[in-house]
């Protein structure tokens, strides 16, 4: 595909003696939000960490923006234009909200206009600008974690289960935030367990099972096909909505 920003081909990852990814093939087109779904242990987080170079691919290739990145160190991958929001959020709790964002803005002090854009959907970050990040609530920490990924323009944003453990009200607002990021033209690869979130923000979907991508296509098609959802995800929609 000509508009492909990220492409994984036959990626295998071993962690210690465990073989986690068994030949992942995945494509994330430019300007679209690709959802990565699957049951627990399917290899979604490992896929994101392998893309970031936090775990090494033992086989296969990863191309980003036309260049192979599978052998690069994590800082080089980040500098190539990929931002990462881990499942654990990994905010620096001893640093203030401001310091977290200053650190994330590699190119210099954070741009005022971009900060205002972020404050538009994350007002708590303005309110607690000089507070230690460790004192924020879980939802506020997630806001900070996402804000860190978008404080500067990045070509691709990898987000791992941003709604995990958050209250429904915050999830609704996070969906709006993700849509806003999409409107701004960012390419997003989003791991999500919450199917409703996936439905609302996803353009495309890849479903993983046992370390492989077993389905890929349009999110709308999966959302419309309950049988397919049950088969791929074991979803009972009543319990997930």
């Amino acid at each position: 595909m000509s508009d492909t920003l990220l492409a994984l081909s036959g990626v295998h990852t071993h962690i210690g003696r465990y073989h986690i990814l068994h030949g992942v093939d995945l494509v994330a087109p430019q300007g679209r939000t690709t959802m990565l779904l699957g049951r627990n242990g399917a290899g979604k987080t490992t896929t994101l960490r392998t893309i970031m170079g936090l775990w090494r691919a033992s086989q296969g290739s990863i191309h980003f923006d036309g260049a192979a990145i599978e052998g690069l160190a994590t800082p080089d991958i980040a500098q190539a234009g990929i931002a990462y929001v881990p499942e654990t959020m990994a905010i620096f709790s001893d640093l203030t909200v401001r310091e977290n964002l200053v650190l994330a803005a590699r190119g210099g002090p954070p741009d005022e206009k971009r900060l205002e854009w972020i404050f538009g959907f994350f007002p708590a970050l303005r309110k607690f600008w000089l507070s230690r990040a460790g004192t924020l609530s879980g939802g506020q920490k997630q806001m900070l974690s996402i804000a860190r990924a978008i404080v500067e323009e990045r070509k691709l944003i990898l987000i791992d289960e941003p709604t995990k453990g958050l209250s429904p009200a915050i999830v609704v607002a996070l969906i709006d935030c993700l849509k806003e990021i999409k409107r701004a033209g960012a390419t997003v690869l989003l791991v999500e367990q919450n199917f409703r979130v996936a439905q609302e923000v996803g353009d495309l979907v890849c479903v993983m099972e046992s370390g492989r991508v077993v389905h890929h296509g349009a999110m709308a098609d999966l959302a419309a096909d309950e049988m397919l959802q049950r088969r791929l995800l074991g979803l009972s929609l009543d319990s997930h909505q």
Binding site: G120, F121, F122, A124, K127, L136, C177, K179
Partner: peptide, 14 residues
């Protein structure tokens, strides 16, 4: 766009 509530005040940092 729904803005996330800014939340209640944080405990004072001692």
């Amino acid at each position: 766009m729904t803005a996330i509530d800014a939340g209640t005040a944080l405990p004072r940092q001692k």
